[in-house]
Design a protein around this nucleic acid. Structure first.
Lengths: 229, 229
DNA sequence: GCAACATTGTGCAAAAGTGCACAATCCTTC
DNA sequence: GAAGGATTGTGCACTTTTGCACAATGTTGC
């Protein structure tokens, strides 16, 4: 969904194998499972356990994890805590990220209430909405500001990330304001392609597209079962 | 995110080039841009226009579109309307899909209000929530049912798709009930890996993972700019 | 009707991603 | 302290995806 933004290559050095885009996609999922297992008291995990959890090959898991350094113990596996720390460090979630949320609709409320973010080290420090009726209200202790205050809050709170959850028609305008305010990354839920400078990272989640993909898979399965007759 | 479910190969015939997984991912995006352009009065589009819109190579676009048949006119491009029809047909969104929504929280409300679905041919015909307080309430004219009625509604309304927006702990249980009720595809927003039979298609959207990916991209960009010094 | 131009469809090669297989390593048991 | 079992790291081959380059085709202007 975001094929044409910042490249995930990160080696000052020369011939080292680059960190593959696909691997990074899986890193978050590894992390989630590891943290659950850690809570359940599992001190050591193997590549095949992780592979099963994600539905992928165990060799793939080992190759992914090799990017973190040689953490694996042959004959044993990986120490859960060590792996978690390495993953968090490599993903950049070993410290808290401050984020703002623009567009306080139902999606925004859902995101705020969804505990997963806080647990992963993300902290929403500002809400913004253009609707004057909403400005001044509080949600979960956070006040809704007018968009004019974007730059001020972003500077004052050292905000790096922004979530855009406004209608498609306003999204680009919001993005431009965020970029101007010095934001470094945008998570876009508006169903439109945002144009941002290369120094700003962008991830887009298009919910309608996801449902369409699902429809396609079902459509396909039906065709196949028809063909098979 | 859903690498191990239904395969997108759909050829009864023998040696035809299979419809590539990556292409399908882009089909929805092509469709969105085409529908916008159509509205703006554009009768004809070229592969390079589409490529620019998606940030990919124009040859890639032509290869994707070749799966729809030889719609392109050399020297001209593609007729917008014809391409839209072909895409909708191939994606299976040339007719309306009925869907149910399980778990009526803020995310569900956001999805219901999000016009994109109706526009793309998706219709929510039933809401379900285990909370007795919510059962009986109405949202946008749709009544919230108890989960016990899942099977009945799914059968009566010919529902093929379900959106799961319940907490992670309940998701698998809900999925099992949906599968038992004969659902054909599940769009899962719960941050957990659902296990479903192979004849049920599955797409998972994990919002926390997306934010983590964004953090990684920003983290990486910062490292790079540090390295460059 | 012909030259100039734009654009498609596709063979081919390069790149990226995946999976197998096996040597190397470590633990456990006797 | 040696054998057996478990597990990693990785070379190699295979598959999928992407990008280039160009012949083939259609349009437009004169």
């Amino acid at each position: 969904m975001s094929k044409h933004d910042a490249t995930p290559e990160a080696n000052g050095a020369a011939g080292e194998p680059r960190l593959s885009r696909a691997s990074v996609q899986r890193f978050s999922l590894y992390l989630r499972h590891l943290e659950r297992w850690k809570k359940e008291g599992l001190e050591v995990v193997s590549s095949s356990q992780l592979g099963d959890a994600l539905g992928i090959n165990d060799a793939q898991v080992r190759k992914d994890l090799a990017y973190l350094g040689n953490l694996g113990q042959p004959g044993i596996g990986y120490y859960t805590q060590e792996l978690i720390s390495a993953l968090r460090y490599r993903l950049g979630v070993d410290h808290t990220w401050n984020a703002v949320l623009v567009g306080v609709g139902n999606l925004a409320r859902a995101l705020l209430r969804y505990g997963g973010f806080a647990q992963q080290g993300f902290r929403f420090v500002g809400l913004f909405d253009a609707d004057p009726q909403k400005v001044g209200q509080k949600i979960d202790g956070l006040q809704i500001h007018s968009p004019e205050k974007l730059a001020a809050v972003i500077a004052a709170e050292r905000v790096d990330l922004a979530v855009v959850a406004v209608p498609a028609a306003e999204a680009q305008q919001v993005a431009d304001a965020l970029v101007a305010a010095g934001i470094k990354g945008i998570l876009n839920f508006a169903p439109t392609l945002l144009r941002v400078p290369t120094h700003v990272s962008l991830i887009a989640v298009d919910l309608a597209v996801q449902l369409e993909q699902l429809a396609f898979l079902v459509h396909l399965a039906q065709q196949e079962s028809t063909d098979a007759r």
